[in-house]
Amino acid sequence: MPCHRCSSGAFEVIGSRERKVRKNAGQIECYITRRLRCLVCRKIHHELPNFMIPYKRYDARTIEEGIRPSEPLVLPLLKLNIELPNIQESDFNYLSQD
């Protein structure tokens, strides 16, 4: 993993911190992440596993499920139980250009 500021790959471990992550059902799990300092520019980074997203409190799976709908957004009219009026072709005569 290279440093985002200077592209160096040299880090030293300077400690750890607790990180709380919310799951889909609302339960909170605590993880310990390592704090790393770049040896070149001295910027501090946190080593995150791939299911954690920086600056977000929900795990990646929960965020993906919230973005991706479980059903199509355009539902068939029959599924919505909407009765449509009988529309005739003559109802659209005002649209024709005479």
Rank of each mutant, 00 (worst) to 15 (best):
M1S: 15
M1F: 10
P2M: 09
P2S: 11
C3L: 04
C3Y: 01
H4C: 08
H4D: 10
R5D: 11
R5Y: 09
S7P: 01
S8F: 05
G9E: 13
G9H: 04
G9L: 07
A10C: 08
A10R: 12
A10S: 14
F11P: 00
E12A: 09
E12R: 12
E12I: 14
V13G: 02
V13Y: 00
I14L: 04
I14Q: 04
G15A: 07
G15N: 01
S16L: 05
S16G: 08
R17S: 09
R17C: 06
E18P: 00
E18S: 11
R19F: 04
K20A: 10
R22C: 01
R22P: 00
K23T: 02
N24V: 12
A25T: 12
G26D: 09
G26H: 05
G26F: 06
G26W: 04
Q27D: 15
Q27K: 10
Q27F: 06
E29G: 03
C30W: 00
Y31W: 08
Y31D: 00
I32T: 15
I32G: 02
I32P: 00
R34Q: 12
R34P: 00
R35W: 02
R35S: 03
R35G: 01
R35T: 09
C38Q: 02
L39A: 10
L39N: 13
L39T: 15
V40N: 06
V40F: 00
V40L: 09
V40Q: 09
C41W: 04
R42F: 07
R42Y: 06
R42P: 00
K43Q: 14
H45S: 12
H46C: 12
H46T: 14
E47F: 03
P49F: 10
P49W: 07
N50M: 06
N50H: 08
F51I: 07
M52Q: 05
M52W: 03
I53H: 02
P54C: 12
Y55H: 11
K56E: 11
K56G: 00
K56W: 00
K56R: 13
K56T: 04
R57V: 13
R57K: 14
R57I: 13
Y58F: 12
Y58A: 08
A60E: 08
A60Y: 05
A60Q: 07
R61F: 06
I63S: 01
E64H: 05
E64W: 05
E64M: 14
E64K: 10
G66L: 14
I67N: 02
I67K: 05
R68H: 06
R68V: 15
R68C: 09
R68Q: 07
P69C: 03
P69I: 06
S70Q: 11
P72L: 14
L73Q: 08
L73M: 10
V74Q: 05
L75P: 01
P76Y: 04
P76H: 12
L77W: 06
L78S: 15
L78H: 07
K79I: 08
L80S: 04
I82T: 13
I82L: 15
E83S: 12
L84G: 02
L84F: 11
P85D: 09
P85Q: 05
N86S: 11
N86L: 15
I87H: 03
I87A: 07
Q88R: 15
Q88D: 12
S90A: 08
S90T: 13
S90R: 09
F92D: 03
F92I: 10
N93F: 09
L95D: 02
Q97T: 14
Q97C: 11
D98L: 13
D98P: 14
D98R: 08
D98S: 05
